[in-house]
Amino acid sequence: MNNIANKQAICNKLLEASQTDKDIVVLCSDSRGSASLTKFADELPEQFIEIGIAEQNLVTVSAGLASCGKKVFAVSPASFLSTRSMEQAKVDVAYSNTNVTLVGISGGISYGALGMTHHSANDIATMASIPNMRVYLPSDHFQTEKLIEALLQDDKPSYVRVGRNAVDPVYEENNIPFEMDKATLIKDGTDVTLIACGEMVKSAKDAAEILAKEGISARVVDMYCLKPIDKDIVIKAAKETKGIVTIEEHTIYGGLNSQVAQITAQNYPVTVIGMGLPDAPVITGKSQEVFDTYGLNAEGIAKEAKKVLNK
C-alpha cells in the first residue's frame, strides 16, 4: 500500500517544487526530523532556515522573508505553532498579508502519550478566528500534495495541519478529485451526511460502508478546507439528507462542528451531531487507542449516524 505520512508528502512536494523555484524557503524550529524535512535541509540548504526552538521568531522571520518576495513554509509542531505563536500568525502573517504557509505537524493527538502539552485540539478554532487566515486539514497524502500545489500558486496566508503518522489513503493514485476551497464529495448518499476533516475522513468513509451493509445510505464529505469552508455542500447536505454528523480530531468548540452547525442554523436547520475530542485532558495512548476511546472510528461514527435517523 502506498502509505506515507502527510508531512512526508509535504516535504516531497516542496523538494520537487524547490528545484526550479528558488523563491521557496522552508523554515523549522528544531523540527526538521519530526517534520520529515531532513532531506530538504540536506539537499537544498540554501533554501532552508533553522530557527531553533523559538516558534514566535519562526513565524515573524517567515513573514519578513515573505515581504521580500519569498514563498515561505514555516513548519513546526501544530500544538506550539497554533498557540505560542498565534499572535505572530495574526499580526505578521494574516494582518500584514504575507505569503506564509504555516504547517502544523503532528497535529491533533498525534503525540499520544506525550500529553496535553503536545496536543493541538484547538488549532482550527484559533487559526480560523484570525481574519485573512485560511485553514486546511488534508485527509491523505494524495490530497496533501494537491493542496501544496495549489498553495504554491497563490500568495495568501494559510495554516495547514497534518498528523504525525502514515495513514491509509482515502483516494487513489489515478483518482484524486481536488478543487481549491471546495470540499470533496467522496460518496453520495440520501439518508445521512458524514462531514469529516483531516485524518478522520478515512474513518468516515469506512463508516459509510458499515452503514451501507445495514441499508443506510450515507453521504461522505471531505471538508479539508475549514476556512474558507464550503458552505454550499453543507447546505445541500442539510436539504438532501436527514441530518449531519461531523467528525474531527479537534475539540467540538470552534472547529468543524461549530462551523457546520452555524451554517445549517442560519440556512437550513437540521440535526448536527458533533464528534470530536472532549473538553478535558485527553486519555493517554496511541492515536488509535485514543480515537477508539472517544468513538472516533468507523464503528463509532456509524453508531452516531444512526442516532440522526432515529430522531
Binding site: 522571520v61 519578513g64 521580500c68 518576495g69 505578521d92 494582518y95
Partner: peptide, 24 residues
C-alpha cells in the same frame, strides 16, 4: 513595510528581511 503595533515583532521581521537579502 509591515504592520506593527504589538511590541516584540519588528526585529524578527528585520531578521527575515536580512536573511532574504543575503539569499538574493
Amino acid at each position: 513595510e509591515m504592520n506593527t503595533g504589538s511590541l516584540g515583532h519588528g526585529l524578527a521581521v528585520g531578521v527575515g528581511m536580512a536573511l532574504a537579502g543575503r539569499m538574493d
